[in-house]
């Protein structure tokens, strides 16, 4: 069973998780996803929630449903690059927003980041 944070709907947390798995390579292009029910049992959520997750992934063009065969991760490499870029973009945006909320500048943070390794 998996833990969920409070701030976001469960379906979107699962979408994020699958995107993360694709980016990290735990899920490869063309891989078959488990059936809706199987994934629901694995992650301990409602079947309706997983259906929504699969629908969102399809809308994001990250998956393709082949009739009678199931749902597969896209085999389009360009789509994977776009996903990586948009995820980086999102992370950068939220990082900038949080340093701004503390009044830190980008420059001082960059300096720190460089030292960090």
């Amino acid at each position: 069973m998996t833990d969920f944070t409070r701030d976001k709907p469960i379906y979107s947390q699962l979408v994020d998780r699958i995107c993360g798995d694709i980016i990290k390579g735990h899920l490869r292009l063309g891989d078959k996803l488990p059936s809706v029910r199987e994934y629901a049992v694995q992650s301990g959520v409602n079947v309706n929630t997983v259906q929504r997750v699969y629908k969102e992934l399809e809308l994001m063009q990250l998956t393709e449903t082949k009739r009678g065969q199931g749902t597969f991760i896209t085999s389009d490499e360009q789509r994977l690059d776009e996903l990586r870029n948009s995820m980086k973009e999102q992370l950068a945006e939220s990082f900038l927003a949080s340093i701004a909320s503390f009044g830190f500048t980008k420059e001082e943070m960059l300096q720190l980041l460089q030292q960090k390794e």
Binding site: F4, I10, S43, G44, T49
Partner: peptide
């Protein structure tokens, strides 16, 4: 808290 993930 524990049951929420399966509820609609």
């Amino acid at each position: 808290y524990e049951v929420e993930p399966i509820l609609d």
